[in-house]
């Protein structure tokens, strides 16, 4: 099952996505949670914690910063940049805008 959650700001996308991910994980699915918002907050709704969520490494910025010598595979990205969230959900933050002229 692969789901993308969209909608207007403040509608509850992140809360619903996070709760869905936790619920699916609890019913035995292996869940990859992708936060594709450049203002990524999915970690909070998954239960990772606000301060921790604010500090999660974003794959795009990490790759741009040259921390990886080779372009890793998808599995490599999930392994390298993912974080474990409750119920065994694996969370990957795709990109975060944190500065002016982020490229």
């Amino acid at each position: 099952m692969r789901i993308a959650v969209g909608g207007k700001g403040g509608a509850g996308k992140t809360t619903i996505a996070g709760t869905l991910a936790r619920g699916l994980a609890r019913s035995g699915h292996s869940v990859l949670a992708l936060d594709a918002d450049t203002n990524p907050m999915l970690g909070i709704s998954l239960g990772v914690g606000p301060r921790e969520t604010d500090l999660l490494v974003a794959a795009r910025q990490a790759l741009d910063a040259g921390e990886e010598e080779h372009q890793p595979s998808t599995e490599g990205l999930v392994e390298r940049f993912g974080t474990d969230a409750p119920d065994g959900v694996r969370l990957v933050v795709v990109s975060r805008i944190d500065s002016a002229d982020p490229g």
Partner: peptide, 10 residues
């Protein structure tokens, strides 16, 4: 719009 994108891109 929501978030930091347009602030970042002036």
């Amino acid at each position: 719009p929501a978030g930091p994108r347009q602030t970042a891109f002036d």
